[in-house]
């Protein structure tokens, strides 16, 4: 989890099944990035849980951090990207379709916090590198075959 303030940008590269969730407050020019690897912290089986990587714990944790940076909850908006299905398998194992499950869980979590999703680029079968510009609130998304797009 990272936070950036104007004029900096925030970036993560090589997103596959993971979902990059950008939460931002346009008026304060502050943004946070959550790198969601797994949909639900109930899947965690370790002695300690790293809240940052689950949709249901990482997003609320980021909201708290952004509040400390002066952002207001009701002004927060979200842009999300990632959740690809990199490989096509015949198997229906849940772990094989982790990308779509991550996207679903992120959307549900944002809904329960009443944070609107302004734009998204999710699913598909391509890896993504994303970069959020805190000045313009534009999310730049680069894929190998489709170049760069902005949402």
């Amino acid at each position: 989890m990272d936070i950036a303030k104007s004029p900096n940008s925030i970036r993560t590269s090589g997103l596959g099944s993971c979902v990059g969730v950008i939460l931002y407050d346009e008026s304060k020019k502050v943004a946070g990035l959550v790198h969601v690897m797994l949909p639900d912290s109930k899947l965690g089986r370790g002695d300690t849980i790293n809240v940052a990587k689950f949709a249901d714990t990482g997003i609320p944790a980021m909201v708290d951090q952004l509040k400390q940076e002066g952002a207001q909850l009701f002004k927060l908006k979200a842009k999300i990207a990632g959740g690809a299905q990199m490989f096509q398998f015949t198997s229906n194992r849940d772990s094989m379709r982790i990308g779509p499950r991550n996207v679903e869980a992120v959307k549900q979590q944002l809904k329960s916090l009443s944070i609107p999703i302004v734009a998204e680029d999710t699913g598909g079968s391509s890896g993504r590198t994303i970069e959020f510009d805190t000045i313009t609130s534009i999310l730049h998304i680069r894929t190998v075959n489709q170049g760069v797009k902005e949402i």
């Binding site: 090589g14 997103l15 596959g16 690897m37 797994l38 965690g44 790293n50 990199m86």
Partner: peptide, 23 residues
């Protein structure tokens, strides 16, 4: 499964099971 893409996006698929337990 076969794909041509960014290394990070590919290898992260192998980390799904591991990430349930640790980092």
């Amino acid at each position: 499964g076969l794909t041509v893409d960014m290394f990070g996006a590919i290898i992260s698929f192998g980390l799904v099971e591991v990430s349930k337990i640790g980092d």
